[in-house]
Simulated assay, not measured.
Amino acid sequence: MKNISNTTRNVMIIIITVLCVIVAILILKANANNKMSNNNTHIPTFYLHGYAGTGNSMKLLVNSAHESTNVKDVVRAKVSKEGMVTFDGDIHFNAKRPVVDIILEDNTNKDLTKNAQWIRNAIIATMTQYHFEKFNFVAHSMGNQSFSYYMLNYGNDQHLPRLNKQVSLAGNFNGEVDINGLDLDVTLNNKGKPNLMLKDYKDLLTMKQRYPKDAQVLNIYGDINDGTQSDGRVTNVSSKALEYLLGDRIASYETFKVTGAKAEHSELHDNQIVIDKINAFLWEKSR
């Protein structure tokens, strides 16, 4: 009887031990899944206007993001000429996919290094009220040049969140129609490398090393079909030259061409086809 009792006790101990191990594994797995879910959904998306842009510039894009993703947290980050950031609105600490619309007070400043600092300030200010490790960025026109300088100067800063997805809209990387782009007769090879490079473009050639290898980029440009192969301001080859600046460093790179009257430079961010494409790129695969 004593031996039977000892055997039973040993069996019970083994059963309890196995159950404890199973429970521990389940808890660890649940925590890992929750952490992965938080990492996928706690990703803010920043929007930045172009030259002389205002709070209305990216309004339709921001509003559509709010509607299509059921985002409740949409704020404006206003950056003063001195680089001070103030918010209109608050982001809940547990918000999913919040939207931050960056508005630069000095909206005609062509100092791209300074603009990159203002983007950095807006991101850091957002970090004070919302924890995130990755972010998305959508920029129009000169906002893309400013963001390029952000990536060049701060893209590998370990104290800052990493880029997740980027949308370049009407980016002018290597010349404009009414300034120099058309006159240069620029062509691209099969890797997007221009046969002629402006100084601002050459300055960005090392930018690719600052990009995370898992980053994804969508490059949208317009052609108004007037013979200039441009959106009326930026040549298509100038926008498409982004490819060579990124090379094969990142996880994915996609171009999207829009044609017609609504493909005009200042119309692109209000084009419904463009809006739908951007929203699908940013969030459909993340849901």
Rank of each mutant, 00 (worst) to 15 (best):
Met1Lys: 09
Lys2Ala: 14
Ser5Thr: 12
Thr8Gln: 07
Ile13Cys: 08
Ile15Cys: 13
Thr17Ile: 14
Leu19Ile: 15
Cys20Arg: 08
Val21Ala: 15
Ile22Met: 10
Ile22Tyr: 14
Ile22Arg: 06
Ile25His: 04
Ile27Tyr: 05
Ala30Gln: 14
Asn31Gly: 09
Met36Gly: 00
Asn38Gln: 13
Asn39Asp: 14
Pro44Glu: 12
Phe46Ser: 01
His49Tyr: 04
Asn56Val: 10
Ser64Phe: 07
His66Ala: 05
Ser68Phe: 00
Lys72Met: 02
Lys72Glu: 03
Asp73Trp: 09
Lys78His: 11
Ser80Thr: 15
Ser80Cys: 03
Lys81Leu: 06
Lys81Arg: 08
Val85Tyr: 05
Val85Ser: 06
Ala95Tyr: 03
Asp101Val: 10
Ile103Phe: 11
Asp106Trp: 06
Asp106Val: 09
Asp111Glu: 08
Thr113Lys: 15
Lys114Asp: 10
Trp118Gln: 06
Arg120Ala: 06
Ile124Asn: 13
Ile124Gly: 00
Thr128Ser: 15
Gln129Tyr: 14
Phe132Thr: 00
Glu133Cys: 03
Phe137Cys: 04
Asn144Gln: 03
Leu152Lys: 14
Asn153Lys: 14
Asn156Gly: 02
His159Tyr: 04
Asn164His: 08
Leu169Trp: 02
Asn172Pro: 14
Gly175Ile: 06
Gly175Phe: 03
Glu176Ser: 13
Asn180Gly: 14
Asn180Glu: 06
Asp185Lys: 07
Gly192Val: 11
Asn195Arg: 09
Asn195Ser: 11
Met197Lys: 15
Lys199Asp: 15
Tyr201Thr: 14
Lys202Met: 14
Thr206Glu: 13
Met207Tyr: 03
Asp214Gly: 03
Gln216Trp: 01
Val217Asn: 02
Gly222Ser: 05
Asp223Ile: 06
Asn225Trp: 06
Gly227Cys: 02
Gly232Leu: 08
Val234Ser: 01
Thr235Arg: 03
Asn236Arg: 01
Asn236Ala: 09
Ser238Leu: 07
Ser239Ala: 15
Ser239Thr: 11
Lys240Ile: 04
Lys240Gly: 01
Tyr244Trp: 15
Gly247Thr: 03
Ala251Ser: 09
Phe256His: 11
Val258Tyr: 06
Ala263Tyr: 07
Glu264Gly: 13
Glu264Asn: 11
Glu264Ile: 07
Ser266Arg: 13
Gln272Asn: 04
Ile273Met: 11
Val274Gln: 12
Lys277Trp: 01
Ala280Asp: 05
Trp283Gly: 00
Glu284Ala: 01
Ser286Asp: 09
